[in-house]
Amino acid sequence: MKKLLFAALAATALTAQTAAPKPAVPVKLMRLDCGTVAANDLDQFSDTRAYVGQSKRLTASCYLIKHGDAYMLWDTGLPAAMKGKPIDPKAPMDATVTATLVEQLAAVGIKPEQISMIGISHYHFDHIGQAAAFPGATLLIGKGDFDALKAGEPGTSKVPLAPWIDGTAKSVPVSGDKDVFGDGSVTMLDLPGHTPGHHGLLVHLAGMGNVLLSGDVAHFRENYDSDGVPGFNTNRADSIAAIERFKGLAKNLKATVIIQHDPRDIAKLPAFPNWAD
């Protein structure tokens, strides 16, 4: 009896080893320009007064992910109404938009109704500004952020995400990490601290390998390198833990790190309208 059992197990193992692997669903990643931010008072990004008297131009980045025939947006940038807005050099922080998401998608032949999912790193206005252009998409957002939006907590606005907050459109509040497509290719990473439900995104590409999109775990390289915490983060201890986890993932996965607000990281991905794959 034992011999028969061992023989059956051996045959099963051999079949598993020799069977053709299931073909992976092709995944591609494209960076979209979602605006420019003038941080005229850069010290807002430090609760230790690290950047007194400094300023920096930052970028607002969004990302298009193609998983087989499905399209997902990661973040939706500054509001479309800011298109062409002059930047006020005297404001502590100001922003403008050159081209809307819908315009950029049209340039690559994609209609708003083809976007099936929107993943949101967090509830700040420069990451949710153009979400309403895709009311048919399912919204993926950290549960902590979703709850804060529903409660109307300070620093939140329901308006850009109104169809999902009021239940008109489908939403998926995400607790912890989430394997978006169920195959390990795209994972929302639980990185709270900047906001209660803040997430980053891990994308695995066949050619380029692992790519880590930061959300706002850090806003620029100096901030990232020094584990800097902006004074407006909702939880300092969680922020430090999140950036520690993010750096650990980057090291262990040998990932390309894209700090979404740092213009110097844009060149790590092909220029629009080209795909990374």
Rank of each mutant, 00 (worst) to 15 (best):
F232S: 08
N233Q: 11
N210R: 01
L201F: 10
K170Q: 15
G207Q: 14
G197R: 02
G193C: 00
Y224G: 11
K170D: 13
L189T: 07
Y224P: 11
V180W: 07
A218S: 15
K170I: 14
V180L: 13
F232Y: 13
T187C: 03
G231L: 08
L212E: 00
H199F: 12
V229L: 07
F232G: 09
F232A: 05
H204R: 14
P230S: 04
G209A: 07
G215L: 08
G207M: 04
F232T: 08
P196F: 04
N210E: 06
V203C: 01
V174C: 09
P192W: 02
G176Q: 09
N235Q: 02
P173C: 05
K178E: 14
L201K: 06
G215Y: 05
G200D: 03
A169V: 03
A218H: 09
L201Y: 09
S214Q: 06
K178I: 14
D227W: 14
D190E: 06
V174F: 08
S175K: 13
L191I: 12
S185F: 06
K178D: 11
P196I: 05
P196L: 07
E222Q: 15
S175P: 11
F181W: 11
H194C: 03
D177Q: 06
G207K: 14
V174S: 05
H199V: 14
G182C: 09
